[in-house]
Design a protein around this nucleic acid. Sequence first.
DNA 1: CGATGTCTTGAAGCAGTTCAACCAGGGTGG
DNA 2: CCACCCTGGTTGAACTGCTTCAAGACATCG
Lengths: 253, 253
Amino acid sequence: MTICLAEASGAMEALRRDAYVADMPLVCRSCAVRDDGICGAMTDGQLSDLCRHTTRRKIDHGSELLSQGERILSYANILKGVVKLTKRMSDGRQQIVGLQFAPNFIGRPFADESALTAEAATDIEICAVSKPALDNMMIHAPDLGHRLHRQALVELDEARDWMLTLGRKTAREKVASFLHLIATHSTRDGRGTLRFELPLSRQDIGDFLGLTIETVSRQITKLKRENVIRIENSRNVTIHDLHRLADVAGVDC
Amino acid sequence: MTICLAEASGAMEALRRDAYVADMPLVCRSCAVRDDGICGAMTDGQLSDLCRHTTRRKIDHGSELLSQGERILSYANILKGVVKLTKRMSDGRQQIVGLQFAPNFIGRPFADESALTAEAATDIEICAVSKPALDNMMIHAPDLGHRLHRQALVELDEARDWMLTLGRKTAREKVASFLHLIATHSTRDGRGTLRFELPLSRQDIGDFLGLTIETVSRQITKLKRENVIRIENSRNVTIHDLHRLADVAGVDC
DNA sequence: CGATGTCTTGAAGCAGTTCAACCAGGGTGG
DNA sequence: CCACCCTGGTTGAACTGCTTCAAGACATCG
């Protein structure tokens, strides 16, 4: 099932051997998220230590990183792209319970088995870390523990925010909330207007919002007609007035 | 607004002064949760240190411990009772995003301002701890940090489980899920049959499930008619077959 | 160019809401 | 002690927002 976070050996042996002697590992030097995520909490020394247990990978959208009920063998840093975390019921119903963007960390310390499925929503790039190696490092680097603790709390806040969306918002507000979420996680280019590509299919959006694909589509069309958003090719979104979108989403009230 | 987690000084000065010289603080000796929650991670010495910054309190149901948007000045351990965590929108809609039972810890490390409201669902008893004191202790007691980290992750798991309930289950399944949740958090007396009192009003249950009070009532009545549950005085529940309830709830699939 | 997958649109159905009345228990005061 | 109210819960009937089912549009790719 799982293609990435399950196996340990990687393809970059040579690079990593070099890295081991250097102050900062070679792979990490050009890393986009060297100072973010959990790596920001580590010294060059710790990093080159840990580096012997990491593997960089590119993964196509749709591939599972980790599967509900499966043993967790690795953690991972997202370097690029979006990962969706989903929960499934036996009859096929499913709910996306979280979206992870770069440079976030994926994994669940203190657990052997995954309670959810992690799947690449877009094509992604990750830096996988062997679980025992990081667990071990956590003992000796309290700063690392703090970062992970902090991220867990941020994810908890996000999950609870979304519970309000799922439980109490209308379809219109839900869709607007989703667009708002993606908008605020994309790099703002230019002043005011935001332009980004949706990382999720309509089906995924539905699974994230607890709606059907049709309802999502209808609400998007409606927001389009009202000029709250603009969409081309069903994935490329432009937002002129983020504040207005937030208003429709019922955010920040 | 907040009546408890905001102020620092308490009524048990004398007791606590005594506690300071003893190995294990006097207040803690008879404490029901001494070995659970976060206190279980502490030595007697640490405990008597921390003890100078704690206050035991009884609080009536309905009282707010902490209010959305307010500064966090204290943490608390729940010794008895149930606390609900809610999020409100400006138009009055609200969603319960978590229930906390004894001996859980309430609070949000690494944040100054609360993103949610904590309110006593039942009459409760808590042991409030000054935030700076515990924050400080966290630096020197990594074990404490781990416990808090662990609890945050458990809460995250619970939140995500509930997202599936909110987003993808029917009213019937939702109500059954709620009853199942409460059932599994109450002490099982006797073999098989469970008997407990609902800690939440119908309104609260609705706010927890993203339903109206009427729908909750109807579904409960239906489950009653089908002998999945028994209810007396609208609050005292008896469950003969927990497995059957789990089945109706769509849990564990 | 047809084939396939993704998205949109329409029409009908239904689960859950809304509005309104009613019921039960528990206090309060005459 | 009964009449009164008040709060929390139940039940009914009409409505509506979202789903379901079904068909069509659009884009991509062999």
